[in-house]
Amino acid sequence: MPHFRLHPAADVAPADLHAAFTTAFADYLIGPFRQPLELWPRFLARQGVDIGRSRVAVGDAGILAFALVAPRADVASWRLGVMGAVPAARGTGAAPALLDDFIARAKGEGQRRVELECFAQNERGLRLYRGRGFAGVAPLHGYGSEGVGPSGLASGAVPVGLDEAFAWIDGLARARGDLPLQVTSVSLRAQPMHLHAWRCNGAQVVAAGTAPDQVTVLSLLDTEPGQGGTPALIGALRQQWPEASLHVPQLQRDDLGGDALRRLGFQPLPLHQLLMHRPLA
């Protein structure tokens, strides 16, 4: 019998869950997460996490693993926002038990599917998820702008208010059903930075200055034929921040702007994620 029990994450102290998270991700592919405890609630908000629906595996030594759930009512899906196990618990079955529980509870609540993102280089994670019926929907790449000069003109790109920008994203998310949660309003509204948005016909970007010399593209969605809106949107960012490098996290779909970024000279980051879905019959 496994030496752990599954409990609602709301039943454990936030500091204990934060400590388990920090330990579990100390050897993460893209480097350790150093999320201060005081910023922990903001991190969970950006991930869309519902602590009441999240679960932890608890053993004699404390929290062994956790599965933090982000419900997506707009697409009748539960997202596995964050799942991890402390090193000593790997191989104990705690993480698979949490994943099975996550899938079963989502099905019990009438969800159409479950979803997650996993780094394509995370072989152990992919084996677990594929073994539970998850399949890749789209690669999610990140990009850097090193070596990219001032690009194109901002002709056609107009600034839009954030409420309007969020409503546009949410409409697209409902229509398509396959956008990563972190490029939608759920995550964007929880960002601590001052956000800016521009639109060019059927394309939109939301970005923020995240360092004195860096701008992060938090959401780029281009539905124009040939992704024709992206050059104008990048031009708008260049006009707003002419000296800054542009950074795109590993959440960018190729078919919604990623291909255009490559044509503009952006360099893909070494690691990328896979957006994965599992239907719930």
Rank of each mutant, 00 (worst) to 15 (best):
P2L: 12
H3V: 07
P8F: 12
V12S: 10
L17M: 13
L17H: 09
A20Y: 12
T23N: 06
A26V: 12
P32Q: 04
P36C: 10
E38H: 11
W40D: 10
R42I: 08
F43V: 12
F43N: 11
Q47V: 05
V49D: 07
D50Y: 00
S54L: 10
R55K: 06
A57T: 04
A61N: 01
L64K: 02
L68A: 05
L68F: 14
L68Q: 15
V69E: 14
P71W: 12
W78M: 06
A88N: 01
A89T: 06
A95G: 06
P96G: 10
L99A: 05
F102D: 09
F102N: 13
I103Q: 04
R105M: 12
A106N: 14
K107M: 03
G108S: 08
E109P: 00
Q111Y: 10
R112D: 14
R112P: 01
V114M: 01
V114I: 04
E117Y: 07
C118I: 08
A120H: 15
Q121M: 11
Q121H: 14
G125L: 06
L126A: 10
Y129W: 08
R132N: 09
A135S: 09
A138E: 12
A138Y: 01
A154D: 04
S155I: 11
S155V: 07
V158S: 11
P159Y: 14
V160T: 07
G161A: 12
D163Y: 06
E164Q: 13
F166C: 05
A173C: 03
D178Q: 08
P180W: 04
V183S: 04
R189F: 03
M193F: 14
W198A: 13
C200F: 09
V205D: 12
V206Y: 00
A208P: 11
Q214E: 15
V215Y: 09
T216E: 11
G226F: 06
Q227F: 05
G229C: 15
P231S: 10
L233C: 09
L237V: 15
R238V: 10
Q239R: 15
Q239H: 10
W241I: 08
E243G: 07
A244T: 06
S245L: 15
L251P: 00
D254R: 10
A260H: 05
L264E: 02
L264N: 04
G265D: 09
L271I: 06
L275V: 00
M276A: 08
R278D: 02
P279C: 03
L280I: 05
A281T: 04
